Computed example of a mutant assay.
Amino acid sequence: MPELRTDRLALRAWRESDLDPWAAMNADPEVRRYFPEVLTREQSEASITRFQADLDRRGWGWWAVEVVATGEFIGFAGLDPVDEDMPFTGVEAGWRLARPAWGHGYATEAALAVVEFGFGELGLSEILAVTTATNVRSQAVMRRIGMTYDPADDFDDLTVPDGPLRRNVVYRIPAVKRPPAGV
């Protein structure tokens, strides 16, 4: 399984030591603000098991993210095929970081690394990203990595209770507009 590296980050396999900070992150209502609920420790542990199984099977997926200089686990980033219940198909880029890691450019740096991997190593023709219409911080990352938004792609996630989290937006980047190398 490849490890992705940037100047400041390592996107790597999951470790047993990631469980405590991952569970704490998923129990933080602010980190999970754009999701219907926080996760229990058991749900967080199950997600790590799924993520690592995908990495082992495919060689790509949702990597753990750590700061190279300190070895600190700060969240996850990666690529994953779009869920079957979505109104579109493709491969989605995503990221989620613990609150202390916000505001340092880590999300953009990790997102650029996974997009470059998707185009360079996987040969994808397009990568997309999905978030709630209210998650402007994530949409800002999408724009910074060169993705574009088309309101025609907006959709309601019917698995989410009616309210501000139901409406979703989709950003896309084609391989011809891939970000600059050397992230």
Rank of each mutant, 00 (worst) to 15 (best):
T89R: 13
Y34W: 15
T108P: 06
E37C: 10
Q52Y: 02
V115C: 11
S47P: 01
D80L: 13
T108I: 05
P81V: 10
V160F: 00
D153Y: 12
P179N: 08
E116P: 02
I48C: 02
S138W: 03
A107D: 03
F119N: 02
D150Q: 04
L128K: 05
R8M: 09
S47G: 09
A113T: 10
I145N: 09
G118L: 03
R12V: 01
G103M: 07
A23P: 10
A152I: 07
V183N: 10
Y149N: 11
W95Y: 15
P2M: 08
L165S: 00
M86R: 15
E45W: 13
P21F: 05
R8L: 10
R12N: 06
T159C: 00
W14D: 06
R143A: 15
E92K: 04
G146Q: 05
E66I: 05
D154C: 07
T89F: 00
G163S: 04
Y171N: 06
A133Y: 10
F35T: 13
A93F: 14
D162Y: 12
N168R: 02
L55W: 03
S125H: 14
V38C: 14
T159Q: 11
D157A: 04
M1V: 15
V31F: 06
R144I: 10
M142I: 09
P164T: 00
A13E: 13
T131G: 12
W14H: 04
W60K: 08
R15L: 14
D20T: 06
G94K: 08
L122Q: 11
D153W: 15
P36I: 10
P2Q: 12
Q139W: 14
E84S: 14
S47A: 14
A110C: 12
